[in-house]
Amino acid sequence: MIIKLLTPRSSIDAWARTLGLAAVIAATVFLMWQSDERSLGTPDAEQLRGPSEPDSFVVGSHYRAWSEQGNLEVELTAPRIEQFQDADLALLEGPVARVFPSERPQPWIIEADKGSLRQTEGLLHLAGNVVVTRRAENTDATLTTEALTFNDKEGTVYTDRPVTITEPFGVTQATGMKAWIDQRILELNSQVEGQYETLR
């Protein structure tokens, strides 16, 4: 079963937009950190390092990006980031991104056990206890899953894993999800169930 949500005021629709925004900003911030110059290296150094070891790494990383107006837009932290230049791959340990939308005083928080970024393909994969939290006054809403992929080139966010969206007055569960950020469409693929409380 596929559900398409086209209503601009849909809270799930807002999830899709913000997830995409967070992915693009987080990826952009991390890519700004990377140097445009490739390491020339030496065969001896590569042999000493081994093919499974990173070309470079950062411990205790903390990145921030501001808007042109000087407002904080995103904070990205990770205990460790490893870069593998030949594979065009960066591995993030325990990434946490805080996204500050201009229309909201409270940040969105995206966290996972690990992440991987493929710069050329524009793909950010998050895995293990992926939680997206939308903070609001006295209420939080969360999206949880075990894996989530952001495709910057296609403007999509997707997973084939079970997804749970928890809001103050209800819970939606599904297996598999795909969102098109620009079109503001979210599809819940199968086994869609919802439980909601009505206001009295």
Rank of each mutant, 00 (worst) to 15 (best):
L89N: 04
F150K: 01
E75R: 13
P51T: 14
E197C: 07
I110V: 13
L72T: 07
T198Y: 07
Q183T: 00
R161H: 06
A90I: 06
S190N: 06
H62L: 15
L186Y: 01
Q119D: 10
Q191W: 01
S116M: 11
R49Y: 08
L72G: 07
N71W: 07
E146Q: 03
G194P: 07
D182P: 02
E111V: 03
W15H: 03
R134Q: 15
R17W: 03
K4C: 04
A16M: 04
L199Q: 15
T133N: 08
H62T: 12
G128S: 00
R184G: 03
W108I: 08
V132Q: 02
A78M: 12
P101V: 01
Q173W: 04
L123K: 05
G20E: 02
R118L: 08
V192R: 01
S11L: 14
L123Q: 09
D55K: 09
S10I: 09
F150M: 09
T142P: 13
V192F: 02
T139R: 14
K153N: 12
R104V: 10
P8I: 07
E154W: 06
A78C: 12
V58Y: 06
A136F: 12
I185G: 01
P54V: 13
Y63K: 12
L89W: 03
T77E: 12
Q85W: 08
D140P: 05
E75H: 07
P51K: 14
G170H: 08
N71M: 08
Y63T: 13
I181F: 00
A65K: 03
T172A: 00
A179N: 01
E154P: 04
L19W: 04
L21R: 06
F30H: 15
L76Y: 05
F169Y: 09
E103L: 05
A78L: 07
Q34N: 11
S10Q: 07
G60T: 02
E121C: 02
L5E: 07
T164V: 10
S52Q: 14
I81N: 01
Q195H: 11
E121S: 11
S56A: 11
P168L: 10
G115Y: 03
T133P: 06
P168R: 08
A141W: 10
G50E: 02
A27E: 14
L148H: 02
R38F: 04
Q34C: 09
V96Y: 09
T139A: 14
Q69P: 05
W66R: 10
M177S: 00
E197L: 11
E103R: 02
